[in-house]
Design a protein around this nucleic acid. Structure first.
Length: 549
RNA sequence: GCCCUCGUAGCUCAGCGGAUAGAGCAUCGCCCUCCGGAGGCGUGUGCGCAGGUUCGAGUCCUGCCGAGGGCGCCA
């Protein structure tokens, strides 16, 4: 899944999978059965009694070979047992024909050593991207007001996805597209000017409370549109920064008018013969590229639709050399995916280089009632208010706890509570306990000796091994989460590790008076490894890892 | 009408085509001589419905039912 040669050391965690896969492949060849077309699958069984690793090759290849799965599995096991791979303690046949590998605890001890040796920067860093340049565009709220609570989900998701891609060997660029041109901006400026003059905003104007507040700051003699944009952007930038979300580029739509990028894009499309004029408007023949209707680029009044600048923007991104464009959109925009794909294809680009994760809607609850998020109504809930109420860490983790494919119910009371029902405390408390152990060790004058002097083989308690098992899964969890564009898989893993650490903490004293010094040493290294894993997970989620709470 | 996403425990949600579907919360019990009890342990009910593909389906396909979101010369 990731390079094992030049790109870095061949770490154990990745290596064990390869070792077992190769051994299975050799055994298959030896008994004269072709491997399944889908390859030799190896998985981590959900149940402990099914071993540490399990393969279904016998099941998957038996039919084509005209063999009985269990008999084939038995032959494979016989071959494998003749020359067992490293760390393998037992190989068993189970169920309809699974081949289950049971490993010695030694492999988990080596995992722990690998974790603390590689550290936060080196462990679980699969090189999936090999330096590929990826542009991740997210939030891109209109500069006509604060970011609202619903933007929080896209912000947390987009930023964590960027962190995942970065960790997995991509050259990531975070961008925020500013729709700072057009009717909405004019209405926003007019609304500010009206409020400043003590008047009602125009019809279809902006009526939120923040317009009054900002209008009070509006200096005399400035362009309310330009000033309003800067005011809104400053507010958005500050709020997002509180949530640990920053951008490499804030890309102005207006700047493309000045640079000529929009007209150049239109000319480009015209030159490719995919544009036609009808009813006084200019259209993109997007139906030639999979869209269900043709789309207007220039309205009959001469104004651009939102689409043409959007196309120009994506054309610009590709011109800047990005091999992959990822746009994080809300569910209310999902219908625009086909036309943007069509536009990119019309421009001669591979539409598959463009992908759009869609975040489903967020329902905000407070005191058991749904809180409205509408921007047009006066009572919008801003992201800043949410952060004030629940704190940035709790907000981020909550947004990332579940798949973006499902509608989210964000209960402000639950997320704000400083209690067990709040997952963020459960996870952060684990990290705080790690630091507490370090602190207590220092107070007692217990120093952690070099790893080479520690006897990790003393770690045989199920609680200890469970922590190591979680850590052994992190590299593949990171890779899977990245490939699936699913940061919530990291959140799930972090919760599991935290839970296992709490269990270890409860049952396995590191510094107790009756704990032998050598065991204390081994457990101090286990604590260190857990710390590395938690730090990696929390960093990917953009959640802080506090030393005390 | 068409398109997208979802439907899993009382609630909020995990679940890479695998073996007896998992967490947290809530309920009810239990655990404080020792590293922070914001913790640990135990306790039960569930894959919306019907077909299909597969050795094997919560997962893939089709239909139905239900929820949310889209179907502008608005952004």
């Amino acid at each position: 899944m990731w390079p094992t040669g030049t790109a870095g050391p061949r770490w154990l965690v990745a290596g064990i999978r390869e070792t077992l896969t190769e051994a299975l492949g050799a055994a298959l060849a030896a008994v004269g059965v072709a491997a399944p077309a889908s390859g030799i699958a190896l998985e981590r069984p959900a149940r402990r009694e099914h071993g540490d690793w399990s393969s279904n090759v016998a099941l998957a290849s038996a039919k084509a070979a005209g063999r009985n799965p269990r008999e084939l599995a038995a032959e494979l096991v016989a071959r494998l047992e003749a020359d067992p791979p490293a760390h393998v303690a037992a190989i068993e046949i189970a169920g309809p024909g699974f081949v289950n590998f049971r490993l010695h605890d030694t492999w988990l001890h080596e995992v722990l050593a690998e974790v603390v040796t590689a550290g936060v920067d080196g462990f679980a860093r699969p090189d999936l991207g090999q330096g590929a340049r990826v542009n991740v565009e997210f939030v891109s709220a209109n500069p006509t007001g604060p970011v609202h609570a619903g933007h929080g989900r896209g912000a947390a998701f987009g930023d964590s996805l960027a962190r995942l891609l970065d960790r997995c060997g991509h050259a990531v660029h975070r961008e925020f597209y500013i729709n700072d041109r057009g009717v909405q901006m004019e209405l926003f400026g007019a609304s500010l000017a009206a409020r400043k003059a003590g008047l009602e905003p125009p019809d279809d104007g902006y009526r939120g409370e923040y317009v009054k507040e900002w209008a009070a700051e509006l200096p005399d003699g400035v362009d309310p549109v330009a000033w309003g944009e800067e005011r809104a952007l400053a507010d958005q930038r500050a709020t997002l920064a509180r949530m640990n979300v920053t951008f490499d580029v804030w890309f102005s739509e207006k700047s493309m008018v000045e640079s000529g990028a929009i007209t150049a894009t239109l000319d480009d499309l015209r030159g490719r013969g995919v544009v036609f004029d009808e009813d006084g408007a200019t259209w993109l023949r997007s139906t030639d590229f999979g869209d269900d209707k043709d789309r207007v680029l220039v309205k009959s009044d001469g104004e651009y639709t939102y689409l043409l600048p959007d196309i120009a923007y994506h054309r610009d991104k590709l011109d800047r050399g990005f091999e992959r464009l990822i746009d994080v959109w809300g569910a209310d925009h999902h219908g625009y995916v086909p036309r943007m794909r069509a536009a990119l294809e019309a421009l001669g680009h591979d539409p598959d280089a463009f992908e759009v994760p869609i975040t489903q809607m967020v329902n905000l609850m407070r005191s058991g009632e749904e809180v409205r998020l509408s921007k047009r109504s006066g009572d919008l809930v801003t992201l800043a208010e949410v952060l004030d109420e629940v704190g940035p860490d709790a907000a981020r983790l909550t947004f990332l706890l579940q798949s973006i494919d499902t509608r989210q119910t964000f209960d402000l009371d639950v997320v704000a509570s400083q209690a067990m029902e709040n997952p963020v405390f459960y996870v952060q408390y684990a990290h705080a306990r790690i630091h507490s152990i370090r602190r207590r060790a220092a107070e007692r004058g217990v120093e952690r000796a070099p790893l080479a002097d520690a006897d990790l083989s003393l770690l045989v308690h199920e609680r200890e091994l469970d922590v190591a098992r979680s850590l052994s899964e992190l590299p593949e969890t990171v890779a899977a989460a990245c490939n699936a564009r699913a940061p919530h898989q990291i959140a799930t893993w972090v919760r599991e590790l935290a839970g296992r650490f709490h269990g270890f903490y409860h049952d396995c004293y590191v510094l107790g008076d009756d704990v032998p010094p050598a065991l204390t040493q081994a457990r101090l290294w286990l604590v260190e490894a857990a710390s590395v894993g938690l730090a990696i997970g929390l960093d990917l989620l953009g959640v802080s890892a506090p030393e005390s709470m």
